[in-house]
Amino acid sequence: MTHDTTVRSLVVEPGAAPERLDRVLARGFEDLSRARLQALARDGHVRCDDVEIRDPSRKIAGGSRLEVLVPAPLPAEPQGEALPLVVVHEDDDLIVIDKPAGLVVHPAAGHEDGTLVNRLIAHCGDSLSGIGGVRRPGIVHRLDKDTSGLLVVAKNDRAHQGLSAQFADHGRSGALERAYLALVWGVPEPRAGTITASLARSRHNREKIAVVRDGEGRHAVTHYRVENLPGGDGLTALVRCRLETGRTHQIRVHLSHRGHPLLGDATYGAAFKTKAARLSEKPRAALAALDRQALHAAELGFLHPRTGERLRFESPLPEDFSNLLRALEA
């Protein structure tokens, strides 16, 4: 055992019915995920009454003494980069970021560095206690590269589990709240409603998402409400969207499917570029300056995974978006 390894122990309640090792450990060590504890067992880091146990499903009797050897988190991959971050909230368990448009969340082909994850690793440092044994931020949801706004990230296994459960529930229990502001072409009718349409990768372009028949893709639900009509001419509308599910490109695809693609969305609104010619000079220039889809994650609410406290955050429209809105309203 190295000096960086922590020994955690617990005694199972005497007389308790035999139960799976991983379940006993998960209940006893809530800061470690069940998957992490299973991995530690398979790697020979769990002992029961001084006997090594590598099978996470092994039944453990009441009165047994368990020991878990928890190695220090491995260095993060990718590496940290000390680049700017707009931090809205931070504590020992999580951090809420106001992401600017143009920032990729996670490293991938073509975006190996300079991402939000690189910045978080540098910013959080030792406060990242390890997700799955690696000192890295726990990404529980993402925003498209060119979508701005609020995003929460876990710092440890316990927070990652709690936040992931809320995002998996998609707010059905009322815990999670996500609202986006979008500028769209035309005016959705009715002015408030729900779009329910399954989504899947397009068969014609794997980089795009498409609406498909039920049973062929993932169930997706977007609630929307028209907030106002900039300029009052019905050419554009500011729409507030609340997600019941969180699929890739969901808002962009759902609104485009209804005939109301987002302003500036080159992927799902290319056929509507001619509408920009109907704008007057100032809004047309502001739209060109936006150079992205007009979508902003404006509200984020959830229960703190450790304290259960209700947290709610709002993000003002970024300058490029607000400039376009003002130009349309002029």
Rank of each mutant, 00 (worst) to 15 (best):
M1V: 13
T6P: 06
V7T: 15
E13H: 01
G15C: 03
A16N: 05
A16I: 04
A16T: 08
E19C: 05
D31M: 12
R34P: 00
R36N: 05
R47N: 07
C48E: 13
R54I: 13
D55L: 09
I60R: 00
A61N: 05
L66D: 08
E67F: 06
V68A: 07
V86I: 13
H89Y: 15
H89L: 02
E90A: 14
L94E: 01
A101Q: 03
G102W: 08
L103R: 00
P107T: 06
A109Y: 09
D113P: 06
T115G: 06
N118Y: 06
N118D: 06
N118G: 08
V134C: 10
R135V: 05
G138K: 03
L151H: 02
L151K: 08
A154Y: 10
K155I: 02
A159F: 02
A159E: 00
G162V: 08
L163T: 04
F167P: 07
A168C: 10
D169C: 10
G174S: 14
A175Q: 15
A179S: 15
Y180P: 00
W185E: 09
E189H: 14
P190A: 15
R191W: 14
A197H: 11
A197L: 08
L199R: 06
R201E: 12
N205H: 13
N205Y: 08
N205G: 03
V211R: 07
G217H: 08
H219F: 13
Y224W: 11
V226S: 04
N228I: 07
P230V: 01
G232L: 03
A237H: 00
L243N: 01
R258E: 15
G259D: 11
A270E: 15
F272Q: 12
K273W: 09
T274I: 10
T274K: 14
K275V: 10
E281S: 14
E281L: 13
K282C: 08
A286H: 01
A288E: 15
A288D: 14
Q293D: 08
L295A: 03
E299H: 13
L300R: 06
F302G: 01
F302V: 00
H304Y: 06
E314Y: 07
S315T: 01
E319Q: 11
E319D: 15
D320N: 14
L328K: 03
